[in-house]
Amino acid sequence: MFSSASVRRAAILSVATLALAACQAGSGDPAPDATASATATASPKPDVAIFESGPDSPLGYGLQVPAGATQLGPLSRIRSEQMIKTYAPDLQAAQAQRDADRREDLAERRAENPDEVVPVPVPTPDVRPSQDSFNPLEEQPRPDTVISTMRIDGSPTVVVLRMMAQISAMLPGADVPMRLTEMCTETDMRITGCTAEVTGTTADDREVRVVVNVDPGNVETRTSAPSALRQPVMTLQIRYVGDVREGQRERESSEIGEIAEISPDVDPEGLIWPSMDLDAPADTPLVDGFVAPEDAIILLSGFSPQFVELTTDKAATADLLAQRWVEERIEGEVAKDVAVELNEVNTTYTGSSEDGTYYRATYVLSARGNYVLLRVYPPDAPR
């Protein structure tokens, strides 16, 4: 997996000296047509195997990547808006105390050595990656949201229901859908997408919301999103939704109840997972018209919900790409939050457009590489 407790925070932040690189963006329709998709077979597919995490890889709260699925890139760990708002007064107080201490120290130095020229502190330059946004606090609040992007390589019905069975075991008593007909939309019995939103309480009394989305690809053009390998893609988002401060007192348990066995012959109740002929090309417009730059590799993407997971060679390239993607889609200031945990730095940029569409870009710097997750949330979508 991507985490290693032996890697220290200082080793990560040294990557900040990497040079800035340019990024590109484009516009267009997120759903490719069949003629445009036909070019996908002409160009070689990038080898993304080194960025894959197989079954049983931890997702949080005891959940794991189900057998038959593959996670692409690392988990994205994010502080919710509610968490940032809750801890904002603590941060302001800590910053004010730090500034007062610096002024007092400066005054003492001048009083002790009237003839000494004491330099005035200058603001710390903006480097990439930045230090933790809550660095002035003795203990920085841990991210309360985790996102995973997965490709379904096995039977989609079995994989999806295995995921739901885990959620049911994690949230005993919650109303968890365990049939495709409860989760999926269809046209002529062909599945066009699946969504499940479940809120419940874990065995250790933590209130959690889990959102699962599955995109089989564009049914009309029989085209999968770039790098989906003609397979359905699944996104999983887990967020702690209980009292923010209470949730920081101790880490969540990884113990869940007994997981129901899903038969390989489970009945899809007449629903059909549509077959895709090919993947859309890498220059297909995604996530609100974004076109991946040539120096980035698409690890996985989806049309609905709109997301793309990328990797780049340079840390600063990934960070700047994430920031600019949000800046180009909203008016006003982009919110930025940096969360540092062991050998990973998660830098998240967010903002909303006038119609309420929410844009979230997370740049993950890890020991394995540099990753960017771009995600579009409709106004009524949970985030």
Rank of each mutant, 00 (worst) to 15 (best):
A282G: 12
T187C: 10
P114I: 05
A16E: 15
T235I: 04
P89F: 00
L271P: 01
R179T: 01
L171Y: 00
M234I: 03
A22S: 09
L137W: 07
R77F: 01
A5V: 11
T192A: 08
E258T: 03
E269K: 01
D144R: 04
L321N: 07
G369H: 12
V160P: 10
V376M: 08
P305W: 11
A196M: 05
R206M: 06
E309S: 12
F51V: 06
F134K: 01
V118Q: 13
A49I: 02
A292V: 09
R9P: 09
T185K: 15
V146H: 10
S353Q: 11
Y377Q: 03
Y363R: 07
S53E: 11
P378T: 05
P293D: 14
T284E: 14
L286E: 04
P30T: 08
L299T: 01
I78V: 08
A196N: 06
S353V: 00
P156L: 08
V65W: 06
E246G: 12
E294N: 13
T235P: 01
R98A: 15
W273Y: 08
P378Y: 09
P136D: 11
M83T: 08
R151S: 04
Y359P: 03
V65C: 05
S227D: 11
G200F: 02
A228C: 04
Q92C: 07
K45D: 14
R368A: 13
V176S: 00
T195C: 04
A169Q: 04
C194M: 11
Q237C: 01
L365M: 12
S80W: 13
E252I: 10
R102S: 12
G332Q: 12
S80I: 09
V158K: 09
V334Y: 01
E354C: 05
T201K: 15
G247H: 13
E112S: 08
V65A: 07
L137R: 03
L321G: 02
E309N: 14
G62P: 01
A296K: 14
T362Q: 07
G62E: 09
I12E: 13
A228T: 01
G289V: 08
T35S: 02
A111P: 11
A88L: 08
E250W: 08
D99F: 11
D188K: 13
L161V: 05
L229Q: 14
E344L: 02
A322E: 05
P268R: 04
V176K: 03
A40N: 03
M234W: 04
P74C: 00
R103K: 15
R375K: 12
D56Y: 12
A203I: 12
D90F: 06
Q95V: 05
T192S: 02
G173Y: 08
E246R: 13
G28T: 06
C194L: 08
A111F: 13
Q24W: 15
Y358A: 03
A31G: 07
V212R: 05
Q97Y: 11
E81K: 15
E108S: 14
A165S: 06
D267Y: 00
